[in-house]
Amino acid sequence: MTDDRESILSRVRGALAPLHERAPLPTYDSEIAVLRGLLAGRDLAELLAERMRRVNGLALTSPAAVVAHLRAGGHRHGYCDPALWPDLAPHFADGFTVETSFDRTRVDDYAFGITRAAGAIAESGTIILHDRTTASRLAALAPWVHIAVVSRADIFGDVTQAVAALGDDRNVVWCTGPSKTADVEGILIEGVHGPGEQLALIVP
């Protein structure tokens, strides 16, 4: 098996050699891509909730509201990050089965998954997941309902700030609303491979 590294790089150098000058890296203020008018004077948690609604997501501010939402949807069996469960357990009364480990052989058993978010982006209504804070990638993805627990202090205003704070996590996922497709005749259908419902539980 030969690797084409040297031949590709040599073709690249050959292609670029005749250029009298190369296009410079533009200097710019990332502010150009920020929806400043939207953000001005807004409480970020409120704006996040508003922008999540716009993409068919839902932001809630109390565990009781989350439980009520799950009950109303008939979602009684789910997963919860073991680190979150002690605080949340008291809100889940009878009739719920919540596991703190995710068994991939029973993927269809879990109707909801509760995991920690690393942050959120108010501007776009986005939840940020990191590998280090997500107890299980599958639990945050496979169940119909995903509930991301977001600390108020971790909400970024805009996409530009969130990019600047990507950090060194190997797998950062921005979730902006539920999984969706418009492949069939352009009709919007939610819940293709990932969650059909994307919730945020905003905590202090």
């Binding site: 993409v55 990507l166 190997r170 797998n171 950062v172 996922v173 921005w174 902006t176 609303g177 999984s179």
Partner: peptide
């Protein structure tokens, strides 16, 4: 504004 999922992957898990 953003596609639903934007993944930034820089290595194995």
């Amino acid at each position: 504004d953003l596609t639903v999922y934007t993944e930034f992957i820089s290595g194995p898990r």
